[in-house]
């Protein structure tokens, strides 16, 4: 239940916001620029099966920095964290069920070689 029902409409802060120093923002920004450069450099390297893995690891690190610092997830509690966890969980749903298709797409049921040999035997036994 809201204890200050009208305050948000007037732009009054509901809770005390954590003030992040500009230096932190600058540090995160520079780290993101470096990581972007790293992404570009890695894209031109042939790491075989690790190409996607490495690119995704860098991307997840960059996204985490944005969420933690620029979106203040590091300093927020309660409902904001639930929203964050919910969003990540929902992303997980999308990836998991998409992979459920991608990884099983070729598992079509088809007669196996051993079945061709065993079915006449069973037929003889029964009939």
């Amino acid at each position: 239940m809201s204890s200050h029902p009208q305050s948000a409409a007037h732009g009054q802060p509901m809770v005390h916001e954590h003030i992040v120093p500009v230096s932190t923002y600058l540090a995160v920004f520079i780290t993101l620029l470096i990581a972007t450069g790293l992404t570009t450099w890695v894209a031109f390297q042939d790491l075989g099966n690790w190409n996607v893995v490495v690119a995704l690891v860098i991307a997840v690190c960059k996204a985490s920095l944005v969420v933690l610092f620029f979106m203040h997830a590091k300093y927020n509690k309660g409902l904001s964290r639930i929203v964050l966890v919910g969003a990540v969980f929902w992303l997980g749903i999308m990836i998991t069920f998409t992979l459920a298709d991608e990884l099983t797409r070729h598992w079509q049921i088809s007669p196996q070689p051993w079945a061709g040999a065993i079915i006449p035997v069973i037929h003889r036994l029964l009939f």
């Binding site: 069920f97 459920a100 298709d101 991608e102 099983t104 797409r105 598992w107 079509q108 049921i109």
Partner: peptide, 11 residues
Amino acid sequence: SGQGVYAGLVF
């Protein structure tokens, strides 16, 4: 659409 049979069962 060509989706995996097992994914289809789950959905």
